[in-house]
Design a protein around this nucleic acid. Structure first.
Lengths: 127, 127, 127, 127
DNA sequence: GTGGTCTAGACCACA
DNA sequence: GTGGTCTAGACCACG
């Protein structure tokens, strides 16, 4: 479990931790059901306060990425079988990104190629 | 120039203003070369402190979306003829979004369809 | 004796066990005087540590729902003939619930209808 | 803004603060749109750390009771016009309370009378 | 001025 | 052992 934090970034540490874990889950480096380090362990590993990790875990839990079990610590939430399409918040972020690309002069084709490239890095759900 | 701000959102006002302007440029509602309201004008229109608008404009300038001229005020930056691909920061945001989608159980196909849908809302560069 | 536990809930296990038993008594699935499984039996059935079940039983005893006898094990406390009204702690919880409902915009009528609906699920004391 | 905290209770302070504020909103002591004390002010008033109040406010925000505005601080969330019935979580808590009452020997009539009494303490939405 | 973040260290509840 | 809570104080971002 290696997380890279940028202490000089203006993104809060707990947010960076959250992002890195989401990335790891998306890429399949963390599999559904897999256990994460304990709060204290991770805090000590990456050199931050345990409350900061705690906040990141709580955020991930509230977003539905993690399950937190008092006995086993935190683990990646198993995927639900039926999952519908993207939610409104997701589309809003995606639309903003598309606008940034367009405003920068990228064509639709280049944007979609970039999307595809990003998707390729992720692991696919097994059928 | 109509911007929708959510005063109780946890996204900073200057960030919301920046996002709305990027969206407007992406969708073609603001065309390259077009002038934007002055800082004071916009601030008065949307009822925020002019420092806040100032910050948004400065951010947009630093990101390359706006040109700020003391005489002409702010205007949308004309597109460069040759434009390379997406930059690293953009890809990072896109990858995070792809990871969120994958971690939520969306398939690659659904994600790419959403990307395409977002791209459709944007205006195309004229040939 | 079937109890549904949610291991990833933030409600402590012993509290969940306590709640399920109170529900079963309220609904009449457990009758006054009826015996409950032993601590070890129940712990083994639902797959938790017996200390956890022990804690739940002790809590239920202290709240007056169970009688614990070293010979007969735990049994549902028979109802007293004369029973006074709700106690202070109960009213406090009920008032908080009413406040949550009101603050969410539910009218008094809707709240009382929900109360009635909840009461219908319970078994009535025999005359 | 007077909150009574019980330092020896096993209910976390931030939870007690949250409950007291919900009660105040339900009873109409805090009206929709009304401003709450600042985090620091309330923390100093009731003698707790400001992070504790912060956590309570964040919880109330996430539950939809408060709006937090960087400029004006926290204020009671105005009610939405259309509000449907009680949600599942609410019914679960209410059902548990009904079970507790029944298991204690209260009749349905007594329970409903208690519900009505609790509802009377609340303020009604104005038509 | 506000809320938000973070730290270092403590204590407690749960299992 | 775990996560959860709390403190006292600091610094920063926002407006």
């Amino acid at each position: 479990m290696i997380l890279k934090l940028d202490l000089s970034s203006d993104i809060p540490l707990y947010q960076q931790i959250r992002n890195q874990i989401v990335l790891a889950v998306g890429k399949g480096e963390l599999k559904p059901g897999e256990s994460l380090p304990t709060v204290r362990q991770l805090a000590s590993d990456i050199g931050v306060n345990s409350m900061t990790v705690n906040k990141a875990y709580a955020l991930l839990k509230s977003e539905g990425y993690l399950l937190i079990d008092r006995r086993k610590g935190a683990q990646v939430c198993p995927l639900k079988e039926e999952h519908v399409g993207p939610d409104a918040d997701f589309m809003e972020k995606l639309t903003l990104l598309a606008a940034e690309a367009t405003a920068k002069g990228l064509t639709k084709e280049v944007f979609l190629a970039a999307c595809k490239q990003a998707a390729e890095k992720m692991s696919q759900k097994e059928e």
